[in-house]
Design a protein around this nucleic acid. Structure first.
Lengths: 186, 186
DNA sequence: GTCTATAGGGCGATAGAC
DNA sequence: GTCTATCGCCCTATAGAC
């Protein structure tokens, strides 16, 4: 056994979620969270760049999985839609958790901004990957930006609802509707 | 003449832009900005909720103008595109200013997050307006989110470029390309 | 790990305009 | 008197420097 309890990162996340539930996001200070995890505030910042970031841990892995799931031989928007569906499978397993998390985020503009930033990073990653595979820059940006926008809409609908329709299914429906919305008049 | 110089808000903005140019965004403290405007830090926060906000003053008026320009009798995405074009006319007049501002924002993730938030507010406003005019919620959200995404892509291309092609024109091109990207295979 | 600067909020005092 | 803009001082938490 090591000198320190293992999984400091996980303990911090656990402590944070507990305290956010008990006292609210703002009331729970970084020092409080660290103390409950048996650590100091200084150590908190070794694991998370700032206080907000602890609610978005895991987003990095999703971003990596997202670009990895991108089939660059398919038409750009189809490729983006399929890759996002993979992510939807991963996230969509726990409607209860997503819902609780979203409730906290919805109450704090700072957190909403951070979430937008995370999704923006997905978009940038997708656009870069598409561009690297020969898609022209404008098309790549539009496909990535639009696809992630559809994901955001679908995710919001899914967390707001009862969750009996799965996230991947909600996402597919949103993409279908997007095609209708962008259909040129004839 | 009053006890105070007029237009404290404008003086703060002026002082901030000067100091950001001279010392960079982070180096210029709120106290510095306020002092140059002949005010104190405490007063700064009466006018701007936080330091970042001073770079986004005026965004509120644009949001209002955006929803006001929305022709709710047109098909949703067309309506959104036209309204955004009006905003593009307003912003697109000063490529030099937009470029300088964007350089500061690009260097600071915090500011990028804030900018995303401002555009998200545009999107929410558009979706709400569309919904109020009888468009179903999913369609409204998708049209608004997608349209603002196209605007973001177009704006980025415009500020990165030399600016000889106007922002409204760049935006129209991006919307045309969006139709191609979302075109179903036949 | 400790030390420190800055962001940002709370509250009351002040000095005018009306 | 009321209202409004500003200041001053104290405070805490964040986040970065040492």
């Amino acid at each position: 056994m090591g000198r320190w309890e293992p999984d400091a990162r996980g303990r911090l996340r656990q402590a944070a979620m507990e305290l956010f539930d008990e006292c609210g996001y703002e009331q729970a200070t970084v020092a409080d969270i660290a103390a409950r995890a048996g650590l100091t505030a200084r150590t908190f910042f070794r694991y998370f760049a700032d206080k907000r970031e602890i609610l978005f841990a895991g987003s990095e892995e999703l971003a990596v999985g997202l670009t990895a799931a991108l089939d660059t031989t398919a038409p750009p928007l189809d490729a983006v839609a399929s890759a996002l569906e993979v992510v939807a499978e991963l996230i969509g397993g726990d409607h209860e958790l997503s819902s609780r998390r979203q409730t906290i985020i919805a109450a704090h503009p700072d957190l909403q901004e951070r979430e937008r930033g995370k999704l923006a990073a997905w978009s940038d990653g997708l656009a870069a990957e598409l561009g690297a595979s020969g898609v022209d820059a404008l098309t790549a940006s539009l496909a990535a930006e639009t696809g992630v926008g559809v994901f955001r809409v679908a995710f919001d609908r899914w967390v707001a609802g009862p969750g009996d329709t799965g996230l991947p299914q909600t996402l597919r429906e949103a993409f279908t509707q997007l095609r209708a919305v962008t259909e040129p008049r004839r």
